[in-house]
């Protein structure tokens, strides 16, 4: 191929991948789990791979969102602070607050 054609091919494929990247990100949704009254609401949340989940702590003391299989761990989320997680792997992920063992939730990630 001649140089200008190579340049055009490269430019076109860059444009295509950029467009693809933008379209995938555009479909990714943001979800919120509220921590209030020592519970996760919603207790069960279903999202798609690539979505983000934000835990927001509205209690006057810290909590965590820690997966049973340790695939995610917010560490301590202070009062009025939040923690954002991008769900990359599909599956069902039971989680809990390590500071308050009665607090349990499930994150379900589907393709």
């Amino acid at each position: 191929m001649s140089t200008p054609r190579v340049a055009v091919s490269i430019a076109l494929s860059s444009l295509l991948s950029a467009a693809l990247f933008v379209s995938i990100s555009a479909f990714a949704a943001n979800h919120t789990v509220v921590i209030d009254g020592v519970i996760f609401t919603p207790a069960t949340l279903t999202v798609k791979t690539g979505d983000t989940v934000t835990w927001v702590n509205k209690d006057p003391f810290p909590h965590t969102a820690t997966a049973q299989d340790n695939s995610f761990d917010s560490r301590e989320i202070a009062t009025n602070k939040r923690w954002k997680y991008t769900a990359r792997n599909a599956g069902s992920f039971p989680y809990m607050c390590t500071l308050h063992p009665t607090m349990k939730g499930t994150l379900i990630v589907s393709r």
Partner: peptide, 16 residues
């Protein structure tokens, strides 16, 4: 009303 669940959680934790 809002902090009541904290006392409940504490009680459960203490019982365990």
């Amino acid at each position: 009303v809002k902090v009541r669940p904290a006392f409940v959680a504490h009680l459960e934790h203490a019982k365990h």
